[in-house]
Design a protein around this nucleic acid. Structure first.
Lengths: 194, 194
DNA sequence: CGTACCATTGATCAGGTTCAATGCTCGTGG
DNA sequence: CCACGAGCATTGAACCTGATCAATGGTACG
């Protein structure tokens, strides 16, 4: 058991013991090699992953065969910590998402089954899982707002402001599709701004 | 008490009695005149609304002063039935949203307080509110996908396919900003397609 | 009947896309 | 340790789509 991750996670999730230990005991640790997939299109997602070290990316392949970034995962902020297709977990549907390690990473999994059991176990965990769902709803809502209300240039500036750490680790071509533009356009926007 | 709405709502929410009656008794009915607002920017949203008759629109005013549609509300599908700023309800923050009646409408409100009490009352309602949160998460996620993966033209076609009823009641200028384009472009897209 | 609002259409503009070429960096193998 | 190759960022040129500005026409409502 890695104490520093244990502490970090407890702090981020804001759960007291003994509850936190109950959750932590369900986690299974795994090393993921760079470029390896933890989820691929047409899988049914049966886990929720938590990132201890490294970085990952969730992306789609759209109708034209283009790679479109949906989320980046780090071990910093709570909304970046998790990687899963929650839709597939909730509905049992096949996923359209891919989740791939951007570097060698250390991760922890909780199975869908354990998560569901925990979520419905009692008032505490039910409340906790609802709060988690609310958080991911709020970040999805924010994403919609950004896409609707800002120009590509402003989306770039907002991202730079809100998640500067993304630019340290993630290749620009992946950031471009996250913003909804091509790598060339992102390069020109950066050029234009300086 | 309007029986047809009572029945419709029960069917849409899929709640058995006596639970459904418990929820229904908390609703307060109100008539809203066309163009009246039930929520305005800088309010703190203290309700969840349900539409019985008519139609409403949730929109932002962005930095440039443009009106951008966020959601349309009808009495058909469960995800359109509700109008609120759930973010403002959850966090107690001031809203950036406006919700306005597109025609004379009949609506029902549950207060934030009653909703919170109900949600935490027991296992049943906690589960129910969790399921509701999951539903709105899924629709927000879908919205992000549409904005990221489809061109404006394909977004129009998708909307036409998935929510054709929108085009019966909602002026095109409002639909345009929902898709993320100007009314002129929407007009040209329609022209191009025929 | 008149006004106000909305959809449409035209002309021009701007920004992002596409296709293509170049140069840089990093990792690998000789 | 150096040379090579792969992948990525950058840049250029032409293009295309949607934005903007402006004018027209239609429709609904007072």
């Amino acid at each position: 058991m890695n104490n520093s991750f244990y502490n970090k996670l407890q702090k981020l999730l804001e759960i007291e013991n003994p509850f936190f230990d109950e959750l932590y005991s369900l986690l299974q640790c795994k090393e993921i090699q760079k470029n390896d997939f933890v989820l691929q299109e047409n899988d049914t997602c049966k886990f929720i992953g938590l990132l201890e070290e490294g970085s990952m990316r969730t992306f789609y392949i759209n109708e034209k065969g283009e790679d479109v970034s949906f989320l980046f995962h780090f071990n910093q902020q709570i909304e970046d910590l998790f990687f899963t297709d929650y839709e597939s977990v909730l509905l049992g549907t096949k996923t359209k998402l891919n989740i791939q390690a951007l570097e060698n990473s250390k991760v922890h999994f909780i199975t869908k089954e354990d998560w569901n059991n925990l979520s419905n176990k009692n008032v505490f965990w039910q409340y906790f899982s609802k709060k988690m769902t609310e958080k991911i709803y709020l970040s999805a809502k924010k994403r919609v707002e950004h896409l609707l209300y800002y120009t590509p240039e402003n989306r770039y500036l907002k991202l730079l402001e809100e998640k500067p750490h993304i630019f340290q680790k993630i290749p620009q071509k992946y950031i471009a599709s996250y913003i909804g533009i091509t790598p060339q356009s992102l390069s020109r926007i950066r050029n234009r701004i300086n």
